[in-house]
Amino acid sequence: MIRRVLGVLLMALLLGGCERGMHDMYDQPKYKSLAPSPLFANGNSARTPPPGSVATTAGEAADSSGGRRGALPAARSIASPTPLDEQGRSLAQGDMGGRAASNPLPLTMALLRRGQQRYDIYCAVCHGAAGDGDGMIVRRGFPAPPSYHSERLRNAPDSHFFQVITHGYGVMYPYADRVPVHDRWAIVAYIRALQLSRHAPVYQLDASDRAQLQASAGANR
């Protein structure tokens, strides 16, 4: 009998502890907007977003009069290795009034290798290694993106791909907060290389490439 009473008391104490823990979760310590904080040198709890991030509003607040749906204008990057702003405008070319229609970065093997690396990390899971729109999660039921080899996307300007990476499109989430401006243009360059790999004019190939192409065509007959 005594053991039962002790057991009931112990269970009540345990349940009381759980309830207290739940209340701690309900009322977590946090800073309110513009509240001071001794943790940072400037005394402010609000932190400046990292360069390249794009502020967005999501959830129920997006439909309210005090919220805004979609992307907000992003501040210029202060750490970009090239003279580009956060909208992809080339400051070196004086394109201050609109988007850069073509990739403003010099096309080098280093840029393509960087673009391939970033593409494999952020893009291939949906768009596929070759850009066919058959990435690994698409094969498991996720909506398929369009193929980069479609006529529409082969004729699209470089700025289209840059803006989609920056702001997202359809079910694609914006990547501006995780892919810097320079890397976005590197990915665009690599996408162009993927497109060219299937649609390059034969006359642009050198003699050795044409010989390999003819040998491959003969072996497939």
Rank of each mutant, 00 (worst) to 15 (best):
A189G: 06
F162K: 06
A144Y: 03
Y173M: 13
V188P: 05
R140A: 14
Y175P: 02
I165S: 05
I165V: 14
R184N: 02
V188W: 04
A156T: 12
D183C: 10
P157C: 10
W185K: 08
A186M: 04
P180R: 08
S147W: 07
P146N: 11
P145L: 11
V171I: 10
F142R: 12
A193R: 15
Y190M: 11
A176D: 00
F162E: 04
F161Y: 10
R178L: 02
Q163I: 00
S147E: 08
T166W: 02
M172G: 11
P143Q: 13
P146H: 09
R178A: 06
R139V: 01
P145D: 05
T166M: 12
F162Q: 10
G141W: 13
D177F: 03
P180N: 12
H182F: 14
V181K: 05
N155W: 00
R139F: 06
A144Q: 13
G170P: 00
V181G: 06
P143C: 11
V138M: 11
H167I: 01
E151F: 09
H160R: 09
A186W: 03
A189T: 12
V171E: 09
H167G: 03
G168T: 01
M172Q: 06
Y173R: 13
R154T: 10
L196W: 01
L153I: 08
P180G: 00
R192G: 04
R192S: 10
D183G: 08
F161V: 00
V164R: 14
S150K: 08
P145Q: 05
L153P: 07
W185N: 08
Y169N: 12
R184S: 08
G170F: 00
V181R: 00
Y173P: 03
P145W: 03
A176P: 04
R140Q: 15
V138N: 00
W185V: 05
R184M: 14
E151G: 04
Q163H: 02
Y173E: 09
G170M: 06
S147P: 11
S147R: 09
P146S: 10
V171L: 04
V138H: 10
R139L: 15
P146T: 12
R154Q: 15
A156D: 09
G170C: 01
V188E: 00
I191E: 01
A144F: 11
V181N: 12
N155T: 02
H182V: 12
D183S: 10
W185P: 08
Y148R: 02
I187L: 13
I191A: 14
P145R: 06
P157L: 02
W185G: 06
A144S: 15
H160N: 05
I187T: 10
R192W: 07
P145C: 12
N155K: 15
H160C: 01
S159G: 02
H160W: 14
H182L: 01
D183T: 05
R154H: 12
E151I: 14
A186N: 02
G170T: 03
V171R: 13
I191T: 14
S147G: 10
V138L: 08
M172F: 10
F161R: 04
